[in-house]
């Protein structure tokens, strides 16, 4: 099942720093929620085991995450993984604007998770993406 999402996050002036960290694998991996373990593969990619708990799907998903583009105005990340009878592939683009970060994502899900329907999946995905950005924002405040 193909899904598309989009959103806008107002970072109240932290945009530049957050955006710079978003393209940094070290910070990105620390900011993704529910990561159980991770291994850096090269400058732009790493493997992570992510605990996914959403209704019937409650398992550890081995996920390959690649930063495909990281410029001062745009970051593109691809993630794909499978586990617990479900597979997920996600391509997410972040665009830096003066006052906010706009993001859009295309996902393809199959197996058990697809039976939950787009309404539930959209809400869940949106919340997790926003949690990731907020977590990077927190890290940016410390750096």
């Amino acid at each position: 099942m193909k899904l598309t999402y989009s959103g806008v996050i107002d970072l109240l002036g932290d945009n530049d720093r957050v955006f710079a960290l978003l393209g940094n694998p070290e910070f990105l991996i620390k900011s993704i929620p529910d990561v159980e373990s991770s291994k850096r593969l090269d400058d732009r990619s790493f493997e992570a085991v992510i605990k996914l708990k959403l209704s019937i799907v409650s398992s550890s998903i081995r996920t390959l995450i690649q930063i495909r583009e990281a410029t001062k105005d745009s970051v593109v990340i691809h993630a794909s993984g499978s586990g617990g009878g479900s597979s997920i592939a996600l391509l997410i683009s972040f665009q830096r604007n003066p006052k906010e970060i706009r993001w859009s994502a295309d996902a393809e899900v199959s197996g058990l998770i697809s039976g939950l329907g787009s309404s539930i999946l959209n809400t869940f995905a949106k919340r997790k993406i926003e949690e990731t950005i907020r977590s990077i924002q927190k890290a940016a405040a410390i750096v």
Partner: peptide
Amino acid sequence: IFGGFGYNLFSP
């Protein structure tokens, strides 16, 4: 229409 997945409390 949801078939076997429909006969499941998790199905929307």
